[in-house]
Each structure stands twice: as C-alpha cells, then as structure tokens.
C-alpha cells in the first residue's frame, strides 16, 4: 500500500537528499536520492515505481525537469536518475553534492508493460540516454528471470565515450538468456565494438517476433527507424512500445505543454504502443 501517497500534494515537491552522484560520461551523471524521514520500521516507502515512469525534479530556485527513473524498482529506499547536463537546470542538478536536497514529485506516467511481457522475450532497444528509462526493465527481468523469456539489449550511442553503464552492460551480457549488443555511430580506432546505428544490430539477433515484446527509447527519429525495422522483422505494432518526450511543466495533465495529437505524454504516456504512435510520428510539427 502507498500509505503516505494520499497525503502528498502532487503539485508540491518533497525534499529528497542526494546520496550519491556518479559521473557516467563527460556530460551525464547518475544521482541517487533518498527520501526524507524514511520509516524503516514500517517497511513502507513511497518510492514504488513502474519501470518507465518519471519524476519531476526541482532544483531550488532554478526550475523543474521531467527525469526518468533509471534505478532498480526493487530498491524502495531510494530513487535513481540519470541526467544529461544540457541546460541551466540540468547543470545545477548534476552539480549537486552529497547531502544536498532536490525536490521530487511523482512518480508519474505509464510504465513499460511488464505484465504483458511475462513469458515473452524482452527486446530492449536504447539510443543514447534512452538506456536510462529502460534500465529498470533490465533489473526487473534479471531479478525475476523465470517470469520472462530471453532478454535482448541493443544499445546505440554516439561514440564509445557516450556509452552509459558500461560495467553493467558487461555484467548483463554474462547473465543467462541475455544478449547484449552495443554499437556506436562514430568509433575510434581503439574501439573494437560495433560501428553503425542501433538498427544495424538487428541482424545479429534471432528475433522470435511472435513471442517478443520490444521496448524502445531514444531520440524520436531513432525510435521511428527502430520501430519500422522491428515491424519489417515481423513484430506486430502493438508489441512495440516507445517512450515519448515533449515539453512538460506539471506532469499532471493540466499545463497543456506535452500534448501530442490527442495524447498527453505525461499522463497517457510516456510509454505508448507503436500502433497508437504510428499515425502521429511522421507528422511534422505536430
């Protein structure tokens, strides 16, 4: 039960304390936040989230950002976020030190359809920082190995320096029934992995299209290419899921910013099946 959830105003950020900041790449950091006044005796934590959900992170006096939760859904005593520093608010956020407070609202949005994925192969396709909202899926599958079929992780980044969670990628590859393939758009001569966009990895995977569910997250145009190729490989549109992104101010469905055709990304998404997105994805300036 979410014992305290009812008393929390979804409009007001709760101060969480920064427990750890890990530099992943030159501009991307992973923050671990700890909720205030944990009630360990009760064993009740508010941090229950579905893989794929996001929070609104508020930096005191600076601004608020929608950030996907990238941690382990089983670890209820903390929330983990992977943030790319691209503006003032994200820059301030990643500059936090241990013990600093960050405002947290959420979690918000729909998660990846883990229920539907049970008994099936899970194909995770990530581009760039898009691996962050998919990492909880990977944790969930690896913790509950018997519930799911094969786990395939296809990951594309700009360059070898931009690959997130490199040690975990190696560790995941050693798990049973798990295939991990990474590729970069631009490889240096010291890079001995794959070079090419993420879609070039499909040929190394023996997909069982009728018993697979594919989850893709990355730049929208990358997801368009990915979804198209998955369909060519025999996956039905309703078995392909995408994590969408739009400007967001409230995450509650009433600031209006995240509208995408008839959908509000914040409350109807951010996870949508490809058959729902397909009519909209190719509309310029929708």
């Amino acid at each position: 039960m979410m014992a305290t959830a009812a008393t929390v105003d979804p409009m007001l950020p709760q101060p969480y304390s920064v427990r750890q900041v890990v530099k992943e790449t030159s501009d991307t950091f992973t923050l671990t936040l700890e909720p205030p006044a944990l009630e360990p005796s009760s064993g009740v934590y508010r941090n229950r989230f579905q893989p794929g959900q996001f929070s609104m992170l508020w930096v005191f006096g600076v601004g608020e950002l929608p950030i996907s939760i990238s941690g382990d859904p089983a670890a209820r005593d903390r929330l983990v976020y992977t943030v790319r520093s691209v503006g003032q608010a994200t820059q301030t956020l990643v500059s936090c030190e241990v013990g600093d407070a960050v405002g947290v609202r959420g979690p918000f949005g729909t998660g990846w359809p883990m229920q539907q994925a049970q008994g099936r192969d899970v194909i995770v396709i990530a581009g760039g920082i898009g691996l962050a909202p998919l990492r909880p899926v990977i944790y969930e599958v690896l913790h509950n190995r018997e519930k799911y079929g094969r786990l395939v992780i296809l990951y594309g980044a700009r360059s070898p320096h931009d690959l997130l969670y490199r040690r975990e990628l190696t560790a995941w590859a050693r798990q049973r029934e798990t295939q991990v393939l990474a590729t970069v758009d631009y490889g240096g001569l010291n890079w001995h992995g794959n070079v090419g966009v993420v879609t070039t990895l499909f040929k190394y995977v023996r997909l069982q299209p009728t018993r697979s569910l594919a989850f893709a997250c990355g730049p929208e145009i990358m997801m368009r290419f990915v979804a198209r190729d998955l369909e060519t490989n025999g996956l039905a549109r309703e078995n392909i899921y995408l994590s969408m992104e739009r400007n967001m101010k409230c995450a509650l469905g009433f600031c209006g910013h995240c509208q995408y055709g008839p959908h509000f990304i914040c409350k109807d998404g951010p996870i949508f099946s490809y058959d729902r997105m397909r009519p909209l994805l190719e509309k310029y300036e929708l």
Binding site: G61, E64, C250, C255, G256
Partner: peptide, 19 residues
C-alpha cells in the same frame, strides 16, 4: 484555454524561492 507555464524565482541570497 487552460495552458500554463511555471516560473521559478529566488532572492539574491538564494534562501527564499517561489514557483
């Protein structure tokens, strides 16, 4: 029409913030 945005303000000392 219901759309809104949010603006953050803080004082010079950075101890007081409003949204």
């Amino acid at each position: 029409c219901f759309c809104t945005t949010v603006e953050d303000v803080s004082d010079v000392t950075g101890t007081h913030a409003e949204r």
